[in-house]
Design a protein around this nucleic acid. Structure first.
Length: 271
DNA sequence: CGCCAGGCCTGCACGC
DNA sequence: TGCGTGCAGGCCTGGC
């Protein structure tokens, strides 16, 4: 499911239903995730008040009075709001019951997701403390990308998906951003000029912001916090469009595999 | 049946 | 030697 726009859409949708609300009950139905759900959960959550919900990379940080619940949605996770009393289904592994009679429910068939509880600064957690800058922040800029790519001989598509360089650029938006920047996904990262780094930074930022505005992309099962699908998939220029005409030049879109992931690009518009 | 899927960590091999 | 980099594998289920 989720890349940064989908996680951010989820966060924004959930926030008004969670901010300042007390947790009255929490349920763990399946502990085997990317890491085991820690034994202190769910009991440590009962009675806590949610201060706010933050996002770092694709991690959701539910900031509570005595600690932070960290949730990652992996490949197939979704977190959404259901009314109290709604029965859980097969892959509904985790519930937060709130004092407003809402349930925040995590469903994740593949269980590549994550539920953690930390009582100190969540940004210092080993999974978070070595992450690169947020792609929508000023810290992700052309000089930074230029500097960081000088020693990287691998393909630029692989490099922008490295969360230690920049977070939140997943497989869909990597292809889309490279298309809009006119850069071949196969181009060696170290061979990008500063000017092209600037174009790429701009494209990444723009495509992510547009996807957030459209409520994320739904290509299999993503839904937002209200259970509604996103719309951005209709604005894809290359992702999933192998063989279809390029929306700019009509040349058939090509498909290749990089780092065991599918890449889509236009062989004419991207060099 | 085999293959594919929106993520991301780990461990190994390699070269400077 | 030690570090960064590059790459394969693994975690799971479901749909085609």
């Amino acid at each position: 499911m989720p890349e940064l726009p989908e996680v951010e859409t989820t966060r924004r949708g959930l926030l008004p239903h969670m901010e300042g609300i007390r947790i009255v009950r929490a349920v763990v139905r399946h502990r085997q995730m990317r890491q085991p759900v820690p034994p202190v959960l769910p009991d440590c959550l009962v009675g806590l008040t949610i201060r706010t919900v933050l996002r770092r990379a694709k991690y959701l940080l539910i900031d509570c009075t005595t600690g932070t619940l960290i949730i990652h949605l992996g490949m197939s996770g979704r977190l959404w709001l259901v009314n109290g009393g709604t029965a859980p289904e097969k892959h509904d592994h985790f519930d937060l019951h709130l004092a407003n009679d809402k349930i925040i429910r995590l469903r994740d068939p593949r269980r590549f997701g994550l539920v953690l509880w930390v009582t100190d600064n969540p940004f210092l957690h080993p999974l978070l403390n070595r992450l690169g800058p947020e792609p929508l922040s000023d810290d992700f800029n052309a000089p930074y990308l230029f500097r960081q790519t000088r020693s990287r001989s691998s393909a630029i598509k692989i490099v922008i998906m490295d969360s230690h360089l920049v977070v939140g650029v997943g497989n869909i938006y990597a292809s889309e951003a490279l298309f809009h920047a006119g850069i071949s996904p196969r181009k060696s990262a170290r061979r990008l000029s500063l000017a092209r780094c600037a174009e790429l930074v701009q494209s990444i930022s723009q495509v992510l912001q547009q996807a957030i505005q459209a409520g994320g992309s739904s290509i299999r099962d993503y839904v937002n916090s209200d259970g509604m699908a996103g719309n951005f998939q209709s604005q894809f220029f290359v992702y999933g469009r192998a063989g279809e005409p390029c929306k700019k030049c009509q040349t058939p879109i090509k498909h290749l595999v990089q780092g065991q992931r599918a890449t889509y690009y236009c062989p004419i518009c991207q060099r």
